[in-house]
């Protein structure tokens, strides 16, 4: 299968703190990649560099063959103006740990906002799509509600519908269930599971090991800014080769 995301020797530091110390990772189209690792291992930063919410200090990331924040000419990457970055970013959906719905807009307006404003689609068409997406995440009847009236699990499902409204080629999830009460985790994972079954390309940063085992095509274990090991879930979770992976799994399982 074709490579959708190609990450080559990406480095990133915040001041004196090296967060990513040379990451190489390929994600194939239609596959689900789950990234595991202890807090501070750099998994969220890696995810954010993919859609250029963070700029990598070194290295190159391409999505669908093109970098998001740069234009490549020879061996140089020229930074693009914001307008062009925003346009390229619309092919990537991003779901945040803390949902980040727009609290002053209704559920429907939250989902309709990006297709209307960024993709210049007509409002009627966008609303029709939005209602279909809300039905898919089980919230068709809450389209007129405000985010503050919903439970955390419902808000996260709206956030997923909002990300899907751009018809993205790639979906990025940054710990989508970490801010949820335990009894609400399942409903969000169900939605992600459904997306996986439809062949959506996804990179999911999570702490849900059972979910990784079930849904992932590839599991990536990160620690201290590096990828420690990666492979099919049976291998990485069932028979880890590295001591650090074993130690992590022993702690969380």
């Amino acid at each position: 299968m074709t490579v959708m995301v190609d990450i080559r020797s990406v480095h990133k530091s915040f001041g004196p703190l090296d967060v990513l110390k040379g990451i190489d990772l390929q994600v194939r189209a239609g596959e689900v990649t789950v990234v595991l690792g202890p807090s501070g291992s750099g998994k969220s930063t890696l995810l954010r560099t993919i859609n250029h919410l963070e700029k990598a200090d070194r290295g190159e990331i391409t999505v669908d063959g093109a970098p998001i924040g740069y234009r490549r000419a020879g061996d140089r990457l020229y930074e693009l103006p914001e307008r062009e970055v925003l346009r390229r970013r619309t092919k990537i959906g991003f779901v945040f740990q803390d949902f980040r719905l727009f609290p002053h807009l209704t559920v429907l307006d939250n989902v309709v906002e990006a297709p209307v404003a960024a993709l210049k689609r007509s409002r009627e068409e966008a609303e029709e799509d939005a209602l279909r997406l809300l039905a898919r995440v089980g919230l068709a009847d809450r389209s007129r509600a405000y985010p503050g009236q919903l439970s955390g699990g419902q808000q996260q499902r709206v956030a997923i519908a909002r990300a899907l409204a751009l018809k993205p080629r790639l979906l990025l999830f940054d710990e989508p269930t970490s801010a949820l009460d335990p009894e609400l985790v399942g409903e969000v994972l169900d939605v992600i599971r459904d997306l996986a079954a439809r062949g959506t390309t996804m990179i999911v940063v999570t702490h849900e090991i059972a979910f990784a085992r079930e849904v992932a095509d590839t599991v990536v274990f990160m620690d201290d800014g590096r990828i420690v090991e990666q492979g099919p879930p049976d291998a990485v979770l069932g028979a880890p080769r590295e001591e650090r992976t074993r130690a992590f799994l022993a702690k969380v399982l």
Binding site: L53, E82, L101, A117, L166
Partner: peptide, 8 residues
Amino acid sequence: AAQALGLG
């Protein structure tokens, strides 16, 4: 969040 959605 708005930047991630491509809003200008």
